[in-house]
Each structure stands twice: as C-alpha cells, then as structure tokens.
Amino acid sequence: MQTRTLRLPRFLAGGRAALLVVVALLILLFVLGASVSDRFATTGNMLNVYEQSAGLALVSLGQTLTILTGGIDLSVGSVISLLSMLTSGLIAGDEAMVIPVVAGVLVLGALIGAANGVTIVATGVHPLIVTLGTGAIVQGVALLYGLGPVGSVPISFDAFAYGTFPGGISIGATVALALFLLVSFFLNNTRTGRRIYAIGDDPHAADLMGLPRRRILVGVYAASGFFAALTAVYLVSRFNVGQPYTGANYTLASITPVVVGGTMLAGGRGGVIGTLLGVYLVSLLNNTLNFLDISSHYQLVVQGLVIILAVSVYVEKQRGLA
C-alpha cells in the first residue's frame, strides 16, 4: 500500500519525462558529433566516452542520494582530495598495503559522511551549511597533510581506471554502472529505498508516519562519503598519486548530472538512472566539443547553458532554498 501511494506522485511529477529529455539530448549530441567527424561514431570513441565517465559517475551517485532526501553534500570535493592523498600516501608504493589502505579509506569516507549526517540531524542546520563547514575542515586537514602530491602507488594500481574487460570495456566505468544499477534496485525495491523518497518528498509527513528519518539521513550521508572515497581511489588509480585539490571541481560538478537527470533539488523526485544518463551526457558533451574543436573556455559556457536548459524544462517543486 505504502509503496503505491509513494510511487504515483513521483511518476506524475515527470521522472520519466526527465529521462526522455536526457535521452533526446544524448541522441541529438550523438547525431551532431557524427556529422562533424567520421571518428566520432566509432566503437573506440564511444568506449572512450564511457571510460571517462567513471569518476563523475561515482561521486554523482552519492550526491543523488543526498539530493533525493532534500539535502546536498558540498563536502565531497574536499573528501575526495583528502582521501586521495591518504590512499597514495599510506600505500607509499607498497603492494602489500593496497588492500588494507583502500579498505580503510572507504571506511573513513563513510565515517566522514556519517559525521555529516549526525551533525545535520543533531543541529537541525541546513545540510548546505553543514557540509560547507565540514568540507572546509576536511580541506584544511588535507592541506595540513601535504601541500602537493603525496606518496605513490604500484603500477598495477592503474587497473581500476585504465584496465579493460575483453573488447576494451573500461573496468572503472563498468564498476560505476553496476553500482548505479544496484542503488537503483535498492531505491525502488527496498523499504529503506522508498523511505529515502518519502523523507525528501515531505520530511514532516515522514516524521508523522514514524519513519526513522534521522537514521536514514545518517545512512545517506555515509553513502555519499563512501562514494566520494571510491572516487578518490579511482582518481589515484588514474593519476597515480593523490593531491590536495584533486577533488576540488567535483563538488559542483557532481550536482550537474543529478539535476540534468531530473532529480529535484527540493527532494523526493528523480532517481539514479537519470543521474547516470546525466553523467553520460556530460561525458559525451565534452567529447563532442573536443571534436568540434571548441576551446575549453566555451565548454564551460555550454555546460552552464545545459544546466539552465535542463532545470528550466523541469518545473521545480519550490520549497526552501535548495
């Protein structure tokens, strides 16, 4: 009964319509790119687009969850930076340290996220402010740990970012894809998943229904921290080393695919599949602009316009600031 009443408004709110818009944009971009260059619509280039989506995909997955609850996580960039430094700093070239350090970093990411969640529910302060604050603290710690690249990783560590399955299919991007499908299943088919939507849709009603809102919020921010940690590991795999500003751009970048994919900042509507398509859209957009030989300066302009276009098409449910 409960799931039925929750599902209906979400469907009517245009979750599917948003997906159609993104798919239409993807097709449009593909046609545009294909008409510009013969090398665009090749398997090799598409695998390239797929591979380059991995980092943004991982961080946006966690961001989608916080936004679904009506919150936001502005600490992800700093968390990625600090944890990337800890990954390469603690592994320090030692093959034997890889597994314990990566496991430790993932746990630490989840703990930092949980601390965000606990602070949000304990103080009642808007998540935007809380995570802005914790983000600053984590960034400060990262800069205390080192002002430049720290440590190193064994050569084989690049398998996550550059390794491929037979056929040249990127391992990292496929791991991200699998996680999206897993989280999508979780959101749509488990009680906790449905409750995440319920909390975002109407926190007050969620409280009246007796949902464990605080516990779920802590869990959601822990998940965001975990996915930020996974992004950090991925970026170390890609660049061989962690740096204090590796994650800086990911804070705001992680929000773009979420909103382009139809998840409302007000919470309660959207989903991770939209975000995944949003990530592919950003990745394909950058690739297309490269083929069009448009300078990276204009790529920024286009990215901003895409955000405006997307959020102007989906009518936001106006509530509060975010």
Partner: peptide, 23 residues
C-alpha cells in the same frame, strides 16, 4: 519566472560567466 532553485540558477550563471571570461 522559471522557478529554478536559486542554488542552480546562480551556479549556472557562475559557470557561464567564467567561460565567457576565459574565452
């Protein structure tokens, strides 16, 4: 007019403006 959340509206103009400035 478009009911865009302030966070996103000003984020987008920030990015567009940055691009225009760089260009």
């Amino acid at each position: 007019k478009r009911n865009v959340s302030p966070f996103l509206a000003t984020l987008a103009t920030m990015i567009v403006l940055q691009g225009i400035r760089f260009a």
